[in-house]
Design a protein around this nucleic acid. Structure first.
Lengths: 183, 183
DNA sequence: ATTTGCCTACCTACTAGTAGGTATATATAT
DNA sequence: ATATATATACCTACTAGTAGGTAGGCAAAT
């Protein structure tokens, strides 16, 4: 892996473990054993780095969508949630959750990119729920987008809350989300 | 109001609007038109300030509990959720949500206080749900604590997500939580 | 006379970011 | 093949500004 990609990877981890405003370029440079100025060679500002991190996740989301296109709705949802579970087991919350928290401290460009990632995620979830309902796998009364909102907020909230309470709470919430959908 | 309480109030607002790691003592001193060092007179460290903020919310929670003791479960839940709605309309998320995000950047004492606030909130919610179920007002299959977890994560997640999407999403999620409980 | 609540004036450590230099590799022109 | 130019990826050394925090002084209230 080249240095640029390593910086993105470490930045991503720091954002999701500690938060955007709780890490500095020197955290990254120390881990890579290069100098602070060298990080600025690859990313002139912290803003350009966080945008690169968001764009990596936009790419990963597209890949994920393609990987699960042939599966049924319930399998899609289970795999979607397992992405958050795996990250959680490594002490990381989602970029979406972490950066949403710091939303008002960002420059407009970052806010725009984050909006795109959020909309993409929410749209995929909405569409997948609709598909599952059409196929008689899922039951719920509210609109598809509202159900998507309920599920995504359960996950984002669970990531946060289980930092304070117990890791186990995250898994309980995830199980409840799936049980509730399939009844 | 004395200066100490003003500092707590401004600190509280900054934490909930921008996050713990995105504000400094000078943000507070500028707003109060006093010097940076004077903040340190009241709160020797940033840690002591955030603890005072959490403890204020512990007090407010106790007051809230007392205020609603005579109401029925559904009214209790509605009033509980409206606390978050009012804050949201002022651009503030809950202390719980904001500080949970920065959990790993805190000293142990802060983590302990935050755990207490979280447990108190969760316990009250669990107890109120149980009460409503006993009285035939609420219907749900999972355990009381699990239901409490689902509701609180919906709210915490909604606070975050609606920063990125639309203010309106927060209200939709809140309505869904109440509708789902009462069916 | 002591406490309260602020002040001036400072400190150290760190932040993001810049200027300018260098070794190495690669591409191009002679 | 050799000289030259260019790009890459780092470096040292620096800047201006901010972070949290401290020492000691002073006026007013208790």
């Amino acid at each position: 892996m080249n240095t640029r990609d390593k910086i993105i990877l470490i930045g991503d981890t720091l954002i999701r473990k500690r938060g955007y405003n709780a890490f500095s370029f020197s955290d990254i440079s120390k881990e890579l054993n290069i100098k602070n100025a060298s990080i600025h060679y690859h990313f002139p500002t912290k803003t350009t780095l966080v945008i690169a991190v968001i764009q990596k996740h936009l790419m990963l989301l597209e890949k994920f969508k393609q990987n699960v296109t042939d599966e049924n709705a319930i399998q899609k949802i289970i795999k979607f949630l397992s992405v958050y579970t795996i990250a959680k087991s490594e002490g990381k919350i989602s970029v979406l959750g972490s950066l949403a928290n710091d939303y008002f401290t960002f420059e407009p460009e970052v806010q725009t990119e984050l909006k795109i990632l959020t909309d993409n995620t929410l749209n995929w979830l909405t569409h997948t729920l609709k598909e599952g309902k059409r196929d008689g796998i899922f039951q719920y009364k509210m609109t598809d987008r509202n159900k998507a909102l309920m599920i995504i907020t359960n996950i984002l909230g669970a990531e946060q809350l289980s930092r304070v309470t117990y890791q186990h709470d995250f898994h309980k919430i995830k199980e409840n989300v799936i049980d509730d959908l399939t009844k």
